[in-house]
Design a protein around this nucleic acid. Structure first.
Ligand SMILES: [Mn+2]
Ligand SMILES: [Mn+2]
Ligand SMILES: [Zn+2]
Ligand SMILES: [Zn+2]
Lengths: 138, 138
DNA sequence: ACAAAACTTGCAACTCTGTTGCAAGTTCTT
DNA sequence: AAGAACTTGCAACAGAGTTGCAAGTTTTGT
């Protein structure tokens, strides 16, 4: 794991620091998406708030993580499993928010369906957020 | 219009006040979704920030407006055209965000497609947000 | 292995968004 | 017209996110 993390950081031309290593480790160990506050909590306040913001920002820009728009307008982040890079995300999967446990999940198996808009609209990106009860809470 | 506004407010058991009338008027006159800040700007700071928040909250609860989750996690609101009520929204249309003019639009003509999730997930609500170039900016 | 260059971090200060309690004001009911 | 019910503005606050800067760490080149 330690090794995998270094590889990811170096591959993205990022210096290997304690904060980045720890935060990336959290993402790799987690099955659901993380909010900024989750990260602060899970690192045991070991890093400054600002460092967490900047790290997430950097990871986003490099395409290591993607942000997830949620129905309640809170921001969550999850690892990109799809080999995304510098501003070119191409994970087109559905996102699921469980109303029982509150987890936000990437449903990698399901891609966002194509949709036909009225003439004149040019589609660049489609996001789909499903709310309901996840399989652990059913 | 004045008359229509009073009818909407009374139908929802809301007292007719200056603030509510003005804000509802804005929504009726607007073709795209409004953010809190837009409303403050357009009312010429005639009402307190808190009143605007409380009015939006009330309109949401009554089903007069619905909130729109945007890809950049800012909150926008638009009129419900679909006869929604107290916590029972049933506008299932696609939302569009133009990356040129920044407008957020309800595409009432297009409903959100059904999606099949893996076994065990129970779907309650689906939101679809399309980003691209709108027909005015094409 | 070392020094210099390049980058990252923590801190302080600040802005912006949203919330709450309360008293004064307005609207609705009779 | 008066009282009850509801709405508003104010002040105070909490939380989220941003920025500049100096000190600290990582990287690179020798
Ligand atoms: Mn995802
Ligand atoms: Mn809409
Ligand atoms: Zn769940
Ligand atoms: Zn446009």
């Amino acid at each position: 794991m330690e090794e995998q993390i270094q590889k990811i950081l170096k591959h993205n031309q990022l210096s290997v620091t304690g904060g980045r290593t720890k935060i990336l480790e959290l993402f790799l160990a987690q099955d659901d998406a993380l909010a900024h506050a989750d990260i602060e909590r899970k690192t045991g306040e070991k890093f400054d708030r600002v460092t967490v913001y900047r790290t997430l920002q950097t990871f986003l820009e490099k395409g290591i993580i993607h942000s997830i728009p949620t129905a309640d307008n809170s921001v969550k982040y999850a690892l990109c499993k799809d080999n995304c890079s510098e501003g070119h995300h191409h994970d087109h999967h559905v996102h699921f928010m469980c109303s029982v446990c509150g987890k936000t999940l990437c449903i990698d198996e399901v891609s966002v369906p194509v949709v036909n808009l009225p003439a004149g609209y040019k589609v660049e990106q489609i996001q789909m957020i499903v709310t309901g009860v996840c399989k652990d809470c059913a």
